[in-house]
């Protein structure tokens, strides 16, 4: 189960991911990311309550990062837990994401 909420802060949109970003939830996350992309160039992913991320979820994040880069925008990731960070590190996606 994944719970996605968004809020605005300054010019950025903050996306809160809560629960498990598995292969099914990735579809929903991808949809939200696409929506947010049409609204802003600056996105912050808050992963404080994200417990798990599957490779399909990483793909969605990767896609979001790419699309923002194309638009000249920015993607920041914050509050990732050790477990999620471990997955990020393992696949190397941590290298191309900016953390705050």
């Amino acid at each position: 189960m994944l719970n996605i909420t968004t809020s605005s802060e300054d010019n950025a949109v903050i996306i809160f991911l809560e629960g498990r970003l598995d292969v099914n939830a990735a579809v929903e996350a991808d949809r939200t990311f696409t929506e947010v992309l049409s609204q802003t160039d600056s996105v912050v992913l808050d992963l404080q309550k994200l417990e798990y991320v599957a490779s399909a979820g990483l793909r969605a994040i990767k896609k979001l990062r790419f699309n923002l880069k194309e638009k000249g925008g920015s993607l920041l990731v914050r509050n990732a837990t050790a477990e999620v960070m471990n997955i990020f590190e393992m696949t190397g996606i941590a290298a191309i994401l900016k953390f705050v």
Binding site: K62, M90, G92, A94, A95, I96
Partner: peptide, 16 residues
């Protein structure tokens, strides 16, 4: 760690 294949462009990867 080694970057997953397809994750980062070759150019980008080398700078990491």
């Amino acid at each position: 760690m080694g970057m997953a294949l397809g994750m980062a462009d070759p150019q980008e990867l080398l700078e990491l």
